[in-house]
Structures are given as C-alpha cells and as structure tokens.
Design a protein around this nucleic acid. Structure first.
Lengths: 148, 148
DNA sequence: TATTGTTATACTCTATAACTATA
DNA sequence: TATAGTTATAGAGTATAACAATA
C-alpha cells in the first residue's frame, strides 16, 4: 500500500535532513523528551516507547557527544538519571528546525486546509484501529514534528 | 512525524495479515507483476524496483514453494525467464484477499469520501515532492492493494 | 529474590562488491 | 569486454537472553 512506501520515503527524508546534525530520528525523540525534564533510563524508555536495551546505545552516543549527561540516582544507586545538556538543547533546536524544513518540502503542494484534513485522517486511522504507534502527538492537527 | 510511524504500523499489519500464506509483502509484489506475464529476472527487478541481488533470494523462496518457475532463455542462455505457476496464481489471490481485509480494517473508520480524499492527498504529496516511491499505483483512488 | 542498566547474541533488511557463465 | 544471474560480506535495525550491581 502506498501509505507504507510513503512512510518509508518520509523516514528517509527526515533521516537525511538530520544528517548534518549527526543525529538520527530516534535521538531526536530522546532529546525532545528530556527537554521536559530529567528522567530515569527506565521511564525514558517508556516515554519514547523504546526498548531499554536499545536506549543504552542511543544514550552512549548522545553522552559521547555531550548532549546529555548520565548520573547515578543517590536515592537508588541502580538508577541513572539522564539530563539534557545546554549543548543538547541547542542541537535539538537545530535538528527540529531542519525537520520542520523537510516537512515543509514534503507538504509543499498542499493547502493549509488540505494539511489539516490529512492530519485529521491520519489521526482517525490511528484512533479507529488497534494500531500501536510509537509516537504521541499523532492527532496533532499541524502534522507537527514528532519524529519519533 | 506521524506519517512515518503510521507507515511502519501499516507495514506490520500487512506483514502479519500475510503470515498465514507464508509470503511477505515483497513476494506479493513479485507475484503480482508476474501475473501480467513471464519476465526475465532483470526486467522483473526493474518492474518491482528491487535490487536484482535481492530478487534472487525472493525467487529462490518462491521457486522452492513452487509458486514460480525459472528456466533458461533459449535465445540468450544467460537469462532466466520467470513465470507464475498455477499454484502461485492461487496463492497470490489468497494473499491479496488477506491484504484487502487488512486494509478494510485499517480504513474502517473512514467514509468513502474520506478514503478518496486520503488517497488523493497521498498522491499529491508523492507527486509534489522529489520522493522516489517503490511502487506504482500510488495515485490509485482506492488506496488499493499495491503492497510493494 | 527482583530491578536497573548493560552486554552479547542473533535475525532481518539492505547495500556493495566479487564471482560464473554466457555473450 | 560486457551482461545476467549468483554469492559473499558488511552494515543498520531490532528482539531476546544473560549478566553485574544494587535493592
């Protein structure tokens, strides 16, 4: 179905748009969530619907780039508290800008009302089926930049 | 973006719907193309926009299941001519039925006119961007079962 | 004993290069 | 030498199980 192919193509588009930032879509999801505040790795994994096991690798990369920090939770030394750095905050903003530009290119041929309809239909499909989706703001009327 | 996640979820939906047939979406694309007539592997690879190298594995599986046959082209013995068997034809029909059912579930909440709008918008996005898509009938008004 | 984070393993997909047999 | 098909290899992405430290 065309929807699958278009989804893949869109994924490639976003991935390429992010390339200059050194981030991949999944990194963006993590950084975006951390902007709301520091989290434990477990709760972060839940929040971005990622396997805790895969989150480790993502965080290793983000930490190596000094975009996030990990520190032990003094209350429970098994836990790591993950926090967005100021560099991470800046990188996130830049990445979001690039993704938004890519999205503008993608939707260039559509009028505002068509974009609204499109977002609405996407939301309805998600809502009306048992489909589990990896990201949150699907019903966001602006088809906005949740790059989960 | 929601579109990416929905595309992935839809892909999983179709893949699962096909499981009882022992086929994967890519097999379906190959079988569907062969229904139009026998082809050389090269032209088949072109037709379904698949790497000739990956097509080999797909055809090995389809041939092992006796859904297609490969024979040398007498005019150029380097070439293989690939042909749909009658069993392949039946399996294809069954697979298409299952995919269509999955699609009905996916679009269950939408009215006919909403489905039309949706297909139209998908087509416009594809047409208005430089996106290369792996399948043909994207602009098909019925959002029909090209499972490429 | 259970939980947090980590490592190791494996399996699928995909992309690329090298090989064979024919031309 | 070039082409059709094949094989081998390596790289992402993902899922699962086992492990160390801590509770």
């Amino acid at each position: 179905m065309a929807l699958v192919a278009l989804g893949r193509a869109t994924g490639r588009l976003f991935t390429e748009a992010l390339e200059p930032t050194g981030l991949k879509p999944r990194h963006l999801g993590v950084l975006g969530r951390l902007r709301l505040g520091p989290l434990t790795q477990q709760s972060l994994a839940d929040a971005v619907h990622t396997d805790p096991t895969q989150l480790v690798a993502l965080l290793n990369e983000l930490e190596a780039a000094e975009l996030v920090s990990r520190r032990r939770d003094p209350d429970d030394r098994r836990r790591h508290i993950v926090e967005l750095s100021s560099a991470g905050s800046r990188r996130l903003a830049e990445a979001e800008r690039r993704v938004e530009q890519a999205e503008q290119r993608l939707l260039a041929g559509l009028t505002l009302s068509e974009r609204g309809q499109f977002a609405q239909v996407l939301g309805m499909i998600v809502a009306n089926t048992g489909i589990t989706i990896d990201c949150d703001s699907v019903t966001d009327a602006s088809v906005d930049i949740d790059t989960c």
